[in-house]
Structures are given as structure tokens and as C-alpha cells.
């Protein structure tokens, strides 16, 4: 394979990994947004908390935990963090306006980022796993196992979530809440409980994202802020509340960033993705894929 083509494929692969990261983070955020109509500006900070949980578990001095055991621990931990946030700060304001939602969750974000700064300092931390070091090279393209795992897991989670919301009773009632919360009271669906369950699921997916993807990047206190915004951009581009659209948009952002960063300017890769987002906002305010009702 000519070297140019090889480089191109490497950029595409990087873009897909990045897209997988964005997609997993977006998935949790889009879920809570469509079910309870709340934009959680602290969502990316859940990813940060998951990453630091991973860091702590990897650097425990008393015991060495295997990675396969750490994965479920982080998933459960982040689901737990999400439920705590929901119970403490989000539930009391759930019936208020989007302004209250935005300001409150931004407040949560400030708390979480600065708490992390106090506990872990601002130094970037690494969380290498056995998989990051193991490189495979199919067709001459070098890629770490970790990236392959990220891609596979993103697809599995995406398909699994589809199955969940289409086929299970809880999934169907989550869609019901997203479409007509007033009617839920009439048939006896407990909207408050569904909100908590949604946050738990969103948190679990974000925990999974953190435990798989943090090893590929550095961990630092405000890593979540940019991720929140990327996920929000994907959600808006996908057509607010249209979860599938948001996932496609997340992959689009990942690939555009990787290509632009690789060929044009690494420094401006975030400018290009946010620029794309704002362009979509102006040209197609309802998203690339149009708005659909609920999940």
C-alpha cells in the first residue's frame, strides 16, 4: 500500500476511535436529554470521574486488579455518581425551565472539575492498560488493541441500547416518558423513577466509555468540559432528541477532526468541529437528520 494511503487510513481509524469516544459520551447525554428533556452540562464530568476512578483503581498499592475486573467496577461507580447527581441536584429542578437546568448543571460541572483539581492536582495522568501496548497491524496499518476494543464496544452498546429501548418494558416506558410525560401519570408510569433509571443507564454507558477510552488519552480535571460540548454539538447536529442522528454526528465529528488535524492543522481541529456544529445550527437548526419525536 502506498504510504499516502496508509496515512489516510490511519487518520480514518483515529477518527473512528475519536468518533467512538464521542458517540459513547453522546449516547448517555442524548438518553437523559430525550427522556427527561434536560441538558446536563455536567455530563462530560461523569466521564472525567470515571477516568479518575480508573486511575485510582490502577494505582492501588494494596492490590493489583485485573483490567477485566476494573471495567465493571468503573461502570457501576459512574452509574452511581450519575444517580447521586440526579437525586441531589437535578430532581429538585426538573420541572423548572431550561435556563435553570443549564445553570444548575453548569454549577455541578464547576464543583466536580475543581474537586478533581483539589484531589488529583492538574497534572495529566496516564492510565495504560495491557491493551494499549498491544499493537496489531492488519493490512499494514498499526493500531492498538485498545482502539479496536473501543470501536467494537461502541457498536455493541449502540445496538444493545436500540434493543433495550425497543424491546424491554423499561425501555418502552423510557420512550413513553420522553414522548408524553403527562400521559405517563395516567397509565401509572413513575416518571421520577424512570428519570433515575435513565441517569443510571446514561452513567453506566459513560463509565464504560471512560474505562475503555481514558487509557488512550491523558486524564485531567477539565477533560470533561470539551467532551460535554462535543456531545452537545453531536446532539444538536443529529436533531435534538434523535439519538441515532446524534451518534452519526458524533462519528462525523471524530472523522472530520482526525482528517483536519492530520492534513491541515492540529491546533485548529476543535475549531473546525465546533465551526461545523455552528454551521449546521444556522443552516439546519433542526439537525442534519431532522427532528423525530422522542427516542
Amino acid at each position: 500500500m502506498p504510504i499516502e494511503l496508509e496515512i489516510f487510513f490511519e487518520h480514518i481509524l483515529n477518527g473512528l476511535t475519536l468518533g467512538g469516544l464521542y458517540a459513547l459520551v453522546t449516547l448517555g447525554l442524548a438518553l437523559t436529554f430525550s427522556v427527561i428533556d434536560l441538558v446536563n452540562f455536567a455530563h462530560g464530568d461523569l466521564f472525567m470521574m470515571g477516568s479518575y476512578t480508573l486511575f485510582v483503581l490502577l494505582t492501588l498499592e494494596s492490590i493489583v486488579l485485573p483490567y477485566w475486573l476494573i471495567i465493571p467496577i468503573v461502570i457501576v461507580a459512574v452509574a452511581f455518581y450519575a444517580v447521586v447527581l440526579e437525586r441531589v441536584a437535578i430532581h429538585p429542578i426538573i420541572n423548572k425551565s431550561w435556563r435553570t437546568h443549564a445553570v444548575t448543571t453548569l454549577g455541578l460541572s464547576i464543583i466536580l472539575q475543581n474537586a478533581a483539581l483539589i484531589i488529583f492536582t492538574g497534572d495529566p495522568r496516564q492510565t495504560p492498560t495491557a491493551l494499549t501496548a498491544s499493537i496489531v497491524s492488519p493490512f499494514g496499518i498499526r493500531i492498538s488493541m485498545q482502539r479496536i476494543v473501543v470501536l467494537v464496544v461502541t457498536i455493541v452498546v449502540f445496538v444493545g441500547l436500540q434493543w433495550f429501548v425497543r424491546r424491554t418494558k423499561t425501555g418502552k416506558s423510557m420512550r413513553a416518558v420522553s414522548q408524553n410525560p403527562a400521559m405517563c401519570e395516567v397509565v401509572g408510569i413513575n416518571v421520577r423513577r424512570m428519570a433515575t433509571i435513565t441517569f443510571a443507564i446514561g452513567g453506566a454507558i459513560t463509565g464504560l466509555a471512560a474505562v475503555l477510552i481514558a487509557p488512550l488519552f491523558s486524564v485531567f480535571p477539565n477533560m470533561g468540559a470539551l467532551l460535554t460540548l462535543k456531545a452537545l454539538a453531536a446532539i444538536v447536529m443529529g436533531g435534538m432528541g434523535h439519538v441515532n442522528g446524534a451518534i452519526y454526528a458524533a462519528f462525523l465529528l471524530g472523522i472530520v477532526e482526525a482528517l483536519f488535524g492530520g492534513y491541515v492543522s492540529f491546533a485548529y481541529k476543535d475549531v473546525i468541529s465546533f465551526g461545523l456544529f455552528i454551521l449546521v445550527l444556522f443552516v439546519r437548526p433542526r439537525g442534519i437528520f431532522g427532528r423525530r419525536v422522542g427516542l
Partner: peptide
Amino acid sequence: IAFFRIRGVTFAIGTLGAAIIAQLIANN
């Protein structure tokens, strides 16, 4: 004129995106 076509929370998200762009440009 551009942003006020956008309503609700999308406006907040969009303005945040624009702010990040401005800061990235100032930095780079």
C-alpha cells in the same frame, strides 16, 4: 441576528460553542 434564530437550550449550547471557538483562535 444569527443566534437568535435558535431557541431554548440550543441557544446556550451554540453560544458556548462560539465562545470555545473564539478562545481557541485567541490561543492559536
